[in-house]
Structures are given as structure tokens and as C-alpha cells.
């Protein structure tokens, strides 16, 4: 897929969104990358325990997919969900606080990286179970349709989830009930170590859409504008009552699956080839080429983002931990039931 810029026409995102919104989108992509680098660094320094799944290299997919959503629209996310959370408008201080296991975190320190959510902004949560969020997204779409809210749900999942039964059952139900949901597969080529070539019978996961009579489209997931164009059309279709779509964003995670990954299933050359397709570099170039931002503007974003990250980490570090005697709080609404 050639970059749209190469075709000589102005790219879809430039034609569609105000310059300020595009600059904000680029800022969010930087926030995602610096957030994850900050999380990685905090992990190395022993400030965060457990594990985490980084999406560095996949920032365009998360941000572009949320461009035409409002706070009333829902998303469901995955174990690799930091980008989705930031794209949907989360506060980085509360995100870092969650990673640090603090009471001020989005989940009061009970969920951590793999369950981070921001319900007020419509993020129903990351999920530790591959494919676990897919039926939940369809349920959210059923609510929207029944209650007539006009909201849509964007359901993020990875290539690994496309071989889970939940994926197939959920897509089928979304189609037979014509629900306003957009299935967004972030195909980063590997389910942990197993490549899509070895795990998946179809070449492109978007082909699965045919089995459920919905549109399916494979796009360059590192091309912000291409992702916007595909998702926005699917969002419009959902809002118009025409039902679900499946969009497959081809992308790549620069880091390993999680902290334990020794990268034995892929080559250094493959990783560096994809690093050359850095979605942030491509987005910056697109905005510069169309006169939306200049070098000073780019530098300002980087400075602002660095400061935001620094403040967010300080907020997290200075926040209180949950009380030990509240370890079983929030299991039930009526706490006497526990």
C-alpha cells in the first residue's frame, strides 16, 4: 500500500480534520510512546512490578481509530492497551499511578497495566484474556442500539484473538443483529511468538469479515490517515444503522511480547525494517508537508510531552498506596456480601 501522500492528493486526514486536531493527534502518539518508555524505565528501576505489554510502533492505529469518537462512544481494549487508553483521552497521571499500584490509579491499584480502564471516557477496559473484550464490545453495542444512544463501540484486539472462538461468535452476533460496532484488529504479525502465517488460515484477517457478511478492509496501520479513512467510514456505517465492520491495521510492535520475551522468533533486520516505518515519523512528515506544523512546533510537542510524562510520574510516585485492609474492597457493590 503506497502512502497516500505519494498519490499527489491531499491525504484523507488532512482533508477531514482541522489542523489543531491533527496536531493533538500527533501529540497523543508521542504521549503513548513516551508513556511506554517511561513505564519501561520505571520497571527497570523497580518502581513497577509485574509485567507489561508495550505497543511502541503501533501508535497510529490507536490514535487514528479514536479520531471520530466522542466520550459517549465506547472502546474495549487489550493487554496491549496503553495506546487505546491514551487515545480515548485518559489522564497520564492516573495511568502511571495505576502502574505504580496506587490508590489514585484508574483501578485504585487493583488492576494494573492489563486491566486499565477509563469508564468516564468510554474505555471499558483492557483485558488480560485474548479475545475477552470482543463479546463485551458487542454487548455495549447492543446497549447503544436498545437504549437509542447513537453511540458506537470500537473493539480493539490483536491478530492472536482472531483464532479465539469469542471472536467468531461475537462477529456473527454483531452481524445478525446489525449492531454499531467496529472491530479493529491490530495485526502486529505475532501472537506472542507465533506468526500469523503459522497460526491463521487466511492471508489477511480482514478476509474473516466475509464469513460474517460485513465489510472487511486491510490497511497500513502505520499510516495515520489511511487508518482514519477506514475507521471513519466504518463508524459512519455503524452510526447510520448499517451494522459492523472489520478493519485490520497492519503494524508491528518494536518491543517483545512482554518483559520475558527474548525475540527468538524474529530477526533484527525485520525489527529494524519496521522501525524505519515509524508511524510517528510518518505522521510528523505528513503534517509538515501540508504546512500544518513546522520544526519549532514539532519540538514544542516533544518538550510538552516530556514535561507531561515527568509530572505524571511524579504524581504517581507521590500518591498513596491502597490500604491493606481494603484488599478485598470492590468485589461486590454491597460490601457486606463479601
Amino acid at each position: 500500500m503506497p502512502d497516500q501522500e505519494a498519490s499527489g492528493n491531499s491525504p484523507y486526514a488532512v482533508r477531514t480534520y482541522e489542523p489543531a486536531r491533527l496536531i493533538e493527534a500527533l501529540r497523543k502518539m508521542h504521549l503513548i510512546r513516551r508513556f511506554e518508555e517511561g513505564a519501561e524505565d520505571s520497571y527497570m528501576r523497580g518502581l513497577i512490578h509485574g509485567t507489561m505489554h508495550l505497543s511502541i510502533g503501533q501508535e497510529a492505529s490507536a490514535v487514528a481509530a479514536c479520531m471520530s469518537l466522542t466520550d459517549d462512544d465506547k472502546i474495549t481494549s487489550t493487554h496491549r492497551g496503553h495506546g487505546h487508553c491514551i487515545a480515548k483521552g485518559a489522564d497520564l497521571g492516573r495511568m502511571f499511578a495505576e502502574f505504580f499500584g496506587k490508590e489514585t490509579g484508574y483501578c485504585r491499584g487493583r488492576g494494573g497495566s492489563m486491566h486499565i480502564a477509563d469508564v468516564d471516557k468510554g474505555n471499558l477496559g483492557a483485558n488480560g484474556i485474548v479475545g475477552g473484550g470482543i463479546p463485551i464490545a458487542v454487548g455495549a453495542a447492543l446497549s447503544a442500539k436498545r437504549l437509542g444512544t447513537g453511540a458506537v463501540t470500537v473493539c480493539f484486539f490483536g491478530d492472536g484473538a482472531n483464532n479465539e472462538g469469542a471472536f467468531h461468535e461475537a462477529l456473527n452476533m454483531a452481524a445478525v443483529w446489525t449492531l454499531p460496532v467496529i472491530f479493529v484488529c491490530e495485526n502486529n504479525k505475532y501472537g506472542m511468538s507465533t506468526s500469523t502465517e503459522r497460526s491463521t488460515a487466511v492471508k489477511n484477517i480482514a478476509e474473516r469479515a466475509g464469513a460474517y457478511s460485513m465489510p472487511g478492509e486491510t490497511v497500513d496501520g502505520n499510516d495515520f490517515s489511511a487508518v482514519c479513512q477506514a475507521i471513519d467510514a466504518a463508524v459512519k456505517r455503524a452510526r447510520d444503522g448499517k451494522g459492523p465492520s472489520l478493519i485490520e491495521n497492519l503494524t508491528y510492535r518494536w518491543r517483545g511480547h512482554s518483559k520475558s520475551d527474548r525475540n527468538r522468533y524474529r530477526t533484527k533486520e525485520e525489527i529494524s525494517d519496521w522501525q524505519a516505518k515509524d508511524p510517528i515519523v510518518r505522521m510528523s512528515r505528513m503534517l509538515k508537508d501540508h504546512g500544518i506544523i513546522d520544526d519549532a512546533g514539532l519540538a514544542k510537542i516533544e518538550r510538552d510531552v516530556a514535561q507531561t510524562i515527568e509530572e505524571a510520574i511524579a504524581f504517581a510516585a507521590g500518591s498513596p498506596s491502597p490500604k491493606i485492609d481494603e484488599a478485598t474492597r470492590y468485589v461486590y457493590t454491597d460490601e457486606a456480601a463479601a
Binding site: L124, P135, V138, G139, A140, A141, S143, A144, A166, A170
Partner: peptide
């Protein structure tokens, strides 16, 4: 619309019910 026959999809159906319950139904 309110008495909904699901496909024979227990996992998906239960998940749709969970997601619907989280969002107002």
C-alpha cells in the same frame, strides 16, 4: 428486540450479556 434468541454461542452470548450489563441494560 427484548426477548432475544441468540445463536448457539454460549461464550459469545454470555459475553454480550456482560457487556450490555456494563453499559446500561
Amino acid at each position: 428486540d427484548r426477548v432475544i434468541d441468540t445463536p448457539i454461542s454460549e461464550l459469545g452470548g454470555a459475553g454480550v450479556a456482560v457487556g450490555a450489563a456494563m453499559t446500561g441494560l
